[in-house]
Design a protein around this nucleic acid. Sequence first.
DNA 1: TTGTATGCGTTATCAT
DNA 2: ATGATAACGCATACAA
Lengths: 347, 347
Amino acid sequence: MDTNGNSGRGGKPTINDIARLSGVSKKTVSRVINRSPLLNEDTRKRVDDIIRATGYVPNPQARALALRRNFLIGLVHDNPNAQMVLGVQQGILGVLKGTEYELIVRPVDRGSTTLVADVRSFLERQRLHGVVLLPPISENNGLAALCDSLGCRYVRMGSADLDDAAHMVASNDREVVRDAVAYLAGIGHRRIAIITGPQGFRSAFERRQGYEEALSAAGIAPNPGYAAEGNYRFESGLAAARMLLAQAPRPTAIFASNDEMAAGTLHAARMIGLDVPADLSIIGFDDTAIAAHIWPPLTTVRWPIVEMGKAAARKLLAGTIDEQPEMPGDALFPSQLIQRASTAPPK
Amino acid sequence: MDTNGNSGRGGKPTINDIARLSGVSKKTVSRVINRSPLLNEDTRKRVDDIIRATGYVPNPQARALALRRNFLIGLVHDNPNAQMVLGVQQGILGVLKGTEYELIVRPVDRGSTTLVADVRSFLERQRLHGVVLLPPISENNGLAALCDSLGCRYVRMGSADLDDAAHMVASNDREVVRDAVAYLAGIGHRRIAIITGPQGFRSAFERRQGYEEALSAAGIAPNPGYAAEGNYRFESGLAAARMLLAQAPRPTAIFASNDEMAAGTLHAARMIGLDVPADLSIIGFDDTAIAAHIWPPLTTVRWPIVEMGKAAARKLLAGTIDEQPEMPGDALFPSQLIQRASTAPPK
DNA sequence: TTGTATGCGTTATCAT
DNA sequence: ATGATAACGCATACAA
């Protein structure tokens, strides 16, 4: 027996109400909802009018059960960078707005040995439409394979092409760092040091590669003492910079692989009485809020993170009735060097 | 006919598989899942063993349909402050971890005339277990009433008690600002200015009240020229500070209602050659990453935002099988003054 | 304490 | 092009 359909008293209208009101079967209503091509235009319009008039909205829970798939987009990450998580969220949500999709946020522990198993049970339970994988876990090929095997769409974000265009939103870290360091060389610096990100992060690798390529292009011999590793945190930048600034001869410029470490570098310089940029030029990476607000305002690299989040969401929605038009730049996300006041020619 | 249950071939086990395997009805299995008290301990254990052995997990979509309620917690906000959104998320997710609940993030537009209608359709569609309302929209009583009428649990976060304990997680902004300004007075400042937050924000109101109460307690007559309004952004802080510093006599200390505006104040001071803290003391609010990383490190107020997010989630989960123990501090979230290097006695 | 029948609101299958 | 009927997987009412 089919009793769902509340005959107008209380509650929200169901597909049966619409069917009864428009004098068709519920399957036909379903076809209207799902934009089935094999539908008489007249009946489509008639049903559509009733839907609009009643304010009917399909029940997502029932659809999820029947389709064995939810209208949810997952954001799976290991909180590498607050600015990034929030920027990506903002981008995704901007695209999801007005669609029937919602965003569900899922932090994971990249160090855990059960990482893949955790994500698996999450995906199996929630039956998401798709997920966005943030670095560094986006670099895990096992996770991508898992999504595939579970029939869950995915898009990986990262600093290099790890996957095909449908599954990847990449920035050009290497290239832009090459430009940044070339800029330092161009204004006369020869003793240029780097504070790298932690080993195992693709972003750290790419940025260091860009640094080395720029040195090489400028004919500067790499100096092992001019490279120190940080972990993307302020304190590590401070420590790394102190080490770097203790070298003889002292570097006249430091590229820090993110803004937080650049801020640490600034503190380190100040602690030994160095003026920035007169005695030391500093370049950061990310263009977080801190970059423009410290003194001197930091020359840094701006990463179009919100746009990348949007692109990821658009790729996930491709082929659905909520499909968003692919944007021209969805394949390439050029970062750019933002020149502020922390860089100057060496004395 | 009852055919769901896949007899072991492919797919994940359903409640019917468990029922068949343990020789009971599916209703009994359902009782085990939902911890029904009226259950023979023997059968409970037997079914539980099968569940564990098979790795059975109830299908959330089916439960949602039958219960007409989802196992989702919503975070509804209007992005007032990135740090805050992320901190609350972190707190909520920390509590949700290990439970069957997930977090769904929903930005809204507080300026929209359809705000309440938007939230209504969101809640009606998703049938969330509960929502966390962030300021400033948490100050909207209509939203709280809406949640109530929809049978959706809610917790409001804010700077003052707007609701009963079960629905409110509040910080003591007024009190802590009173302490902060009293501290300035205590080290000798008499000309203390304030940069307020935007009108209409309860946090702005509370912080200003705290400022005025402290002045009054210190026997300092309020000077209208020593108050300027900002909008919580860097640029507004910069502009407000320039105005304040143009007053004669010039204030020797400025309390900025958040860190970003405090950073703007620092820039304004530097632009006219003032030394901080020798010529001007500055106190901020939030203890965002920027506070500790600018120069000089900023004296500010630390707001236990992550703990507040946790408390909100715990209140939402109260009474469920995933109930988390109430923590001692779940009613009170004392902020504290973090003394760093941007404050000193006046010259 | 446990089981039977039925509902939850949608989509899929297979007719016509 | 449209409809009748059976899934989808779990919970509730009522019976036993």
